[in-house]
């Protein structure tokens, strides 16, 4: 393993209902940077994040965080799911949701203490929602809801942040304030991994890129990744053959790889 590698994804394959969504993806991510995961719809970006977070079981391969298994370093890694993945009508206030960032397996049975409250208030302030602190989450705009999720991740006080499409359904002002926050986090040595869909802004936002379409197409600095060839490989019709094979595997319930040639 290289120095300064925070996330190592080793030959990872993850399948959804039989078809591989991620296929032999292998990369190492540098720490202290803002890293973008890009690729067309259905290219396995969310699946990658969920597999790294242990929400999905890989068919083969493994993930190491800071050279350790996820379970040993859970407190160092924070996950921001897609905003649409939860029901915002849930009876909770902004404060309640951000407080969830302080929940741990260890303190599950305790009530929140003064330090927790202070951290939560500070996180809410960082995303600029202090005046909405006791507001119901159902009464927030889409951009505000997104910021609540980011504040919850901040309250986790982690070193690595995985965010699934934090810029979706967010107005330009919010996008800028989130970006500013990400840069501040980077300056304090945090690593942020972000799923992003807007190719226009990619080279402005990110220090490092992972370009995905079921397989890993390219990784590296924006300059290295954003070549015409790479983009055609990811977004053009080049991978339809791969998609056809994936579908064949699903229809025939064929194993994705033979057991003995694993890894």
């Amino acid at each position: 393993m290289k120095d300064n590698c925070v996330i190592e994804v080793h030959n990872l394959t993850t399948a959804y209902g039989g078809a591989p969504v991620l296929w032999d993806v292998d990369f190492e991510l540098p720490g202290g940077q803002i890293i973008g995961v890009i690729g067309p719809n259905g290219s396995g970006k969310t699946t990658l994040l969920k597999t790294i977070m242990g929400l999905l079981e890989p068919s083969s391969g493994y993930v190491k965080i800071l050279d350790k298994d996820l379970d040993k370093v859970r407190e160092k890694i924070a996950y921001v799911p897609q905003r649409e993945s939860v029901d915002w009508d849930f009876p909770a206030s902004v404060f309640d949701v951000v407080m969830m960032g302080r929940y741990r397996s260890k303190n599950l049975f305790k009530r929140s203490n003064k330090t927790d409250v202070a951290i939560v208030n500070e996180s809410i302030e960082k995303v600029g929602l202090t005046e909405f602190k006791s507001r119901q989450i159902s009464q927030l705009s889409g951009g505000q809801q997104q910021r609540v999720f980011i504040a919850r991740a901040l309250a986790q006080k982690a070193d690595i942040y995985l965010m699934d499409e934090p810029f979706v359904g967010v107005d330009a002002a919010t996008e800028n304030s989130i970006l500013k926050l990400l840069k501040e986090m980077k300056e304090t040595g945090k690593t942020v991994l972000i799923i992003h869909h807007d190719l226009q802004t990619v080279s402005d936002y990110f220090d490092y890129l992972v370009l995905l379409n079921t397989r890993l197409i390219a990784k590296g600095t924006p300059q290295e990744v954003l070549t015409e060839e790479n983009l055609t490989n990811a977004y053009g019709g080049q991978l339809t053959l791969l998609a056809k094979v994936a579908n064949l595997i699903k229809v025939n319930q064929f194993p994705i790889r033979e057991k003995d040639v694993d890894l």
Partner: peptide, 8 residues
């Protein structure tokens, strides 16, 4: 999903 991500 979040609950699972913090190891619950």
């Amino acid at each position: 999903d979040y609950a699972k991500s913090i190891g619950l």
